[in-house]
């Protein structure tokens, strides 16, 4: 069993600040982390490896510093790590990204055939959820998104049975390997890195692939050129012109404030009483 896990290094979005004057992202001091959704996929891949044996290769595309994310994955137990990095990839949108990753995966496949690819449900910076499906389509693989449970991997028949989150329930799907799986958050809990794996991660000779090594043949399909979408404008949300009507009363006692507010509210929205009565006990 050979599983490739696609991960991305992302800025910790909880700590991103926007410059108040220039409206640009202030990246200084924002820690880079492994996209949290990718960790559910990595853990699921490691569990399959624990149960059925085999290898887990982690793959990432990004700037040279994304190496840290791959080493992190090694410390959790991944066997190999490849960083695809090249200035030519800069500005890639999801279509161009899926092309580059699919191309790199085809190169990995030349060494060891791939049975499964795992990818995060989405990233926390782009939030698109498009790269996983894109890779599956480009490699003509079956696609299982939003998987909440891997029920069974049948190695003899080369099938996998999973539970997939649908809008109003759970679909139980069975498909053939190879396939691409994206994992829903909360499906598992990432293991702790063992001491020996941490040492291995520190010493691991990471493979760095430029566009040639990643097998990119058509340069018009990567970077800005290969990206159909164009960011035409980045801007801060415009403040609403109408600010809140601040309720105040002579006493400013909580009770008076509340009663005054309700009087205004129900004068403006008389039907609201009915809406509340419909739901209220």
């Amino acid at each position: 069993m050979h599983i490739v896990v696609c991960i991305k290094q992302v800025p910790d979005s909880a700590q991103i600040r926007v410059h108040p004057v220039t409206n640009t992202i202030m990246r200084q001091g924002v820690p880079a982390i492994v996209n949290p959704y990718d960790l559910y996929s990595l853990e699921e891949a490691l569990r399959i490896k624990d149960q059925y044996g085999g290898r887990v290769t982690v793959l990432s595309m990004g700037p040279p510093q994304a190496e840290a994310a791959l080493r992190k994955a090694i410390s959790f137990g991944a066997d190999d790590a490849i960083l695809v990095t090249d200035r030519a990839f800069a500005g890639s949108d999801t279509l161009a990204t899926s092309y580059a990753l699919a191309s790199a995966i085809s190169q990995i496949e030349k060494d060891i055939p791939i049975d499964m690819i795992f990818a995060g449900k989405q990233t926390i910076d782009g939030d698109t959820a498009q790269v996983g499906p894109g890779i599956a389509k480009r490699l003509d693989m079956q696609l299982l998104t939003y998987v909440s449970k891997v029920r069974e991997v049948d190695l003899a028949n080369r099938t996998i049975t999973v539970e997939r989150r649908a809008e109003g329930g759970v679909q139980v799907l069975r498909t053939s390997l190879p396939c691409l799986v994206t994992v829903l958050e909360g499906t598992n809990e990432m293991r702790f890195a063992t001491m020996s794996n941490m040492f291995r991660a520190a010493r691991y000779p990471l493979k760095t692939w430029d566009k040639e090594k990643a097998g990119i043949e058509d340069l018009t399909k990567i970077g800005l050129k290969g990206s159909p979408t164009i960011v035409s404008k980045v801007f801060a949300p415009t403040p609403k012109s109408v600010k809140a009507e601040i309720i105040d009363t002579e006493s400013n006692q909580p009770r008076d404030l509340a009663v005054t507010l309700l009087a205004k509210l129900f004068t403006k929205k008389p039907n609201l009483v009915r809406d509340i009565a419909k739901n209220a006990p």
């Binding site: 999801t94 279509l95 959820a129 498009q130 499906p133 894109g134 599956a136 389509k137």
Partner: peptide, 19 residues
Amino acid sequence: TTLGRDLAGSVATTLKTGL
């Protein structure tokens, strides 16, 4: 939705268009 995102990403890649 979970259905829409699964479908949209696949269709856009197949058509090689922007999403």
